[in-house]
Design a protein around this nucleic acid. Structure first.
Length: 221
DNA sequence: AAATCACGCAACCGCATCACC
DNA sequence: CGGTGATGCGGTTGCGTGATT
């Protein structure tokens, strides 16, 4: 580890700015070999000219397995709103209740949607409008997904889609079943959105989550 | 078609905290 | 117990891209 003391490097500038695919590969390979943590030694072991902080951030926010990409679901948005009311800007705490989402992502989401200099009533109004728009989008998306899933099995008979759900579940692979079950859950969320948005629902839901996942203890606000 | 604007996201920075010596 | 390095967190910035004029 020539020229390196601790996590600083002597006589060497750290690279900054956007990561290249080659750098990503080096970091992934490093984590595969050494596991997460010890970020300060990434540069020495992998040849990356990035500081430990930068490597950790890249891994946590972008490369880590299990990360969800794409837009937040209305359910996730609801959780964020509810938890932010409890904890404020404790993004990492909120992120613990959204598997696959990062604190940075949640922070960006909040800043984009709700961090304005408007009055509280204006903020609430914007939240309602945004939630309403997203709900309609989500319903449409779920509806399309469900149609694409079930239609191939309904073409040859007159049974309705609800009846055919069982046929799909019993005839497809385990991963297809999982995917289908997720669709069903998403459909439930979409159809019940007006109900779940009411005051109190998320609190109960989160209370259940707190009991459900003992490895992520609920912190005092 | 070009210029400008607005937005979303990735990444950086500074500070706080923790762990080890 | 204080010093130093490592890590985590929240705030902020800057760039790319799509929308608008």
């Amino acid at each position: 580890m020539a020229g390196m003391i601790g996590w600083r490097m002597q006589d060497q500038e750290w690279r900054k700015g956007p990561w290249t695919p080659e750098e990503d590969d080096l970091l992934i390979e490093y984590v595969r070999m050494h596991g997460e943590g010890r970020w300060s030694s990434v540069a020495g072991c992998s040849g990356l000219k990035r500081c430990g902080k930068s490597c950790r951030l890249r891994w946590v926010n972008y490369l880590r397995p299990g990360l969800k990409k794409g837009q937040l679901t209305p359910q996730e948005e609801g959780i964020i709103i509810e938890l932010h009311a409890i904890w404020g800007n404790k993004w990492s705490t909120i992120a613990r209740y959204l598997p696959g989402r990062t604190d940075n992502e949640i922070k960006n989401y909040w800043r984009t949607n709700f961090k304005t200099k408007k009055t509280p009533s204006q903020i609430r109004e914007k939240q309602k409008l945004k939630a309403s728009f997203r709900r309609d989008q989500y319903r449409q998306q779920v509806s399309e997904t469900m149609n694409s899933f079930v239609l191939p099995y309904t073409e040859d008979n007159n049974r309705n889609k609800k009846d055919d759900a069982y046929a799909v579940k019993s005839s497809c692979t385990t991963s297809e079943q999982q995917q289908y079950n997720q669709c069903l859950m998403a459909q439930d969320v979409a159809t019940g959105w007006d109900v779940v948005s009411e005051d109190g629902f998320w609190s109960e839901f989160l209370w259940d989550m707190g009991n459900y996942n003992p490895n992520q203890p609920v912190m005092e606000p």
